[in-house]
Nucleic acid binder design. Structure first.
Lengths: 338, 338
DNA sequence: CTGAAAGCGCTAACAA
DNA sequence: TTGTTAGCGCTTTCAG
């Protein structure tokens, strides 16, 4: 197949009466060009409305100048937040970002394998998808820098939040307010796509134990993500003979669903029911939701920056950075009704 | 800069004792290769764990084998639906998809301009972003096929839904049930990013007029997207001295917000208030929302298919396809309270 | 400071 | 059926 007859570096060279080498030099802002010829080349470029072919450039320099991000559920607010963080730092780099959305485990595995050949990117960010040891093997064969965000593996670069700690903070907050009947509502605790759920649950249990509160399985409910689902689950909790006075929801979207349920049942929040979420998505502020802020944007930004660093210095060895976590007291938590 | 020392077609050729031409042939499934050598090449490929460099291939064949999709708000359910449609058809093609997310008009304009040079894609899908005549000029300079989804321009390939018609259907449905006090709740009618809003509003007004119902500005409210915002807006509507008996929300997310409001105020749906949405997003089924189905997935799929067709036959001339629209009666509409 | 020329890894005539 | 070779459009030595 014949290639598009677009203007090439050669056309520019001809018009400016220089060699293609020189054009390339001005294209890449190399110093070794006299101002005079540089000017001539510039106008030629202008006149021809020339723009370099990135593919040729990539082949020549041996890099694709794009980095990939593999993440599940691009539609969830928390993922979007992190994505924004990534985009912000990449915007100032020479790299483009391409998004690989993962809808199911098979797809995830496919991408992970493809990393070693098909996907030609210079680096990749993997979000919330903890790789198995075997997969880490694939990765090392791929020989491209990878950083994990919201997932951990000892042999890889990681940006993580300490979910156990966050959950502890949330639970303690409720405890300090005087609650004893604290329920935990979350996404499936063992979901391969939401590894944090497990750790948040751990933090919750730990603190309860510390406080000498016996674990009550009836106070734990898990189910699919989504505000509406959470509403239904919360309702179940609130219809117990001995309902909780506080609910810790493992993510803000679910916390908002809990508020819906309370409202539906005529329970004032926080007077009759305290609700605390996790993530601090934008909507949380709107609902005045007390929550755990885990610097979502920042985690994306730092992941991207870390990748850029590794790209700049491939000899760096794996390390993990922790993201800040803190309690954001807003208006949905208060002492329990007396 | 030195290129990665990855294995190339030459290594395979050497190992299999053939020329690189032959390797290329088996790589591309060309017939003119004896089964014997084909086998030899295959094992060499296997043994070396070789995978062709797509960038080199792209440069050679003069195509990037990727198509771009420019769309606003990748986070909204309706966009995700369309995206799935696109991905489904592209999955069976030789093309990769890269997503360009638009957050604001400046970004949109940048992408539109870049189309003519920076973004090297073989074709692009533009969703919900009606181009100006001037922009269509840029596009023609870009010389790559473009199809518009959910947007119209006479000189371009388009996949659209007749929003006026959809709104008519919705409004008539309410009318037939006996409603006379029908409110309209929507995203900003003049949003540059949601052109359909304008048409849906038109359909609503038309039908009211036909029915001889005077237009009541108090029954029209617009505001930012989002379930929670819609809830607040609906509340306003329902607190009027003479509240509507039915609300037509211009998108499902907002319709769900309306249901929230009704619930908050203790108004049974549909007994006391009828609600109809638009789009038929997955959540709509969950809420039993009566709505207008506009085949979102299908619109994405057809757009992608149309683009593939043009890519296959560049001489095709612009045409526009309409997507199916129909009323989905579920449980949120009923005759008005007597 | 500038030009010539050798690749980057692959495809696609053209010969053999 | 296979090998040879000339590009694709750019970057980057290496001379001059």
């Amino acid at each position: 197949m014949k290639t598009k007859s677009s203007t090439t570096i050669r056309d520019v060279a001809r018009l400016a009466n220089v060699s293609i080498g020189t054009v390339s030099r001005v294209l890449n802002d190399r110093p070794a060009v006299s101002e005079k010829t540089r000017g001539r080349v510039r106008s030629a470029i202008e006149e021809l409305d020339y723009t370099p072919n990135p593919i040729a450039r990539q082949l020549s320099i041996g890099r694709s100048l794009t980095i990939g991000i593999i993440q599940p559920y691009i539609t969830l607010p928390s993922y979007i937040e992190r994505l924004h963080g990534v985009q912000n730092v990449l915007a100032n780099s020479e790299y483009d970002l391409v998004i690989f959305n993962v809808d199911n485990p098979a797809q995830r595995n496919a991408y992970f394998k493809d990393l070693s050949y098909k996907i030609r990117v210079d680096g990749v960010l993997i979000v919330s998808l903890p790789p198995s040891d075997e997969q880490v093997e694939y990765f090392s064969k791929a020989r491209i820098p990878i950083v994990l965000i919201d997932a951990y593996h000892p042999k890889m670069f990681c940006i993580i939040a300490d979910d156990v700690k966050g959950a502890r903070i949330a639970t303690r907050h409720l405890l300090k307010l005087g609650h004893r009947k604290i329920a935990y509502l979350s996404d499936y605790v063992d979901s391969p796509f939401h590894p944090s759920m497990k750790y948040r649950f751990l933090g919750y249990r730990e603190v309860l134990k510390e406080a000498g509160i016996p674990f009550n399985p009836a106070y734990v409910i898990e189910g699919p993500r989504g505000r509406t689902n959470a509403q239904a689950m919360a309702k179940q909790l609130l219809e117990l003979k001995d309902p909780p006075t506080a609910i810790f929801a493992a993510c803000d979207t679910q916390a908002i669903g809990v508020i819906d349920a309370a409202q539906e049942m005529g329970l004032k929040v926080p007077e009759r029911l305290s609700v605390i979420g996790y993530d601090n998505i934008p909507d949380a502020a709107y609902h005045n939701l007390t929550t755990i802020d885990q610097s979502l944007q920042d985690s994306g930004a730092r992941g991207a920056q870390m990748l850029l660093d590794v790209l700049g210095d491939p000899k760096k060895s794996p390390c993990t950075q922790y993201v800040n976590i803190n309690l954001l007291r807003r208006k949905t938590t208060a002492p329990p009704p007396s």
